[in-house]
Amino acid sequence: MAALVEPVVGGIDPLTPVPHRVVAVDRETSDVVTLTLDPLSEVLVPALPGQFVMVWAFGVGEIPVSVSGVDDAGRFALTVRAVGPVSNAVVAARPGDTLGARGPYGTAWPIADAKDRDVLVVAGGLGLAPLRTAIDELGGGGPRRLTVVVGAREPDQVLFTADQRRWRDLGVDVQITVDAASWRWDGAVGTATDVVARLGAAHDIAFVCGPELMMTSAARAAIAQGTDPANVWVSLERNMHCGIAHCGRCQLGALLLCRDGAVVRWDRVVELLRERGR
């Protein structure tokens, strides 16, 4: 009888969490932290930009989290907002604590397709986390022009401000917009869609990640500017659970997003997203 689950590189059972030690906790905002995890035994395959891992808070539960940083030693970073029991437990972790992780799973941003092209990256709220390593790679050279639009609720909710300074130093056009601010705020106030609409130039390829409503609006704005819908990529979340396309909880139409996503081409999902309750 064939095995239900194929082993992945390194022989690690994809359904068994690997213990990791929390080695750093960086508070990004009042309810968002970035944890750096170091493997205690096996080293997971390095995540590609846009992939996610399933994170265990032992005794509480498991959630999918996009990888927001990787290094050569097998360490990786997870940026998490406290919204439920598991994410609260993860956000409460301190250096020295142990969490489980398995993966990485899912598809990645098509970085290679961005070479020598005009690239637009649009991130809303926590949606900047799955794009962080993509921007790091793109900012290091590749695209002809790279524009990053970041939307957040308020100025103190903007993630990765140090990274944004570094990206700007690399020549990336980083534009920040918030929903509301005092007059001291030196960025824009409005939606990410407003900023995209103001860019006034078509981009060859667009990566969009954030709340679904924001992604839909920003993707349409990019397409209105002239970006081919087949070159617009979004990151979709559903109830990822097994991570290996077996349980079906993350189904969206014919897609199982833990395998066929999270990063998907806009033109392949736009009609699915129009259906109520999907």
Binding site: G124, L126, T193, P211, L213
Partner: peptide
Amino acid sequence: RSARLQLVDLY
């Protein structure tokens, strides 16, 4: 459109 999206408190 912007006001409606902001009203939803997307983030």
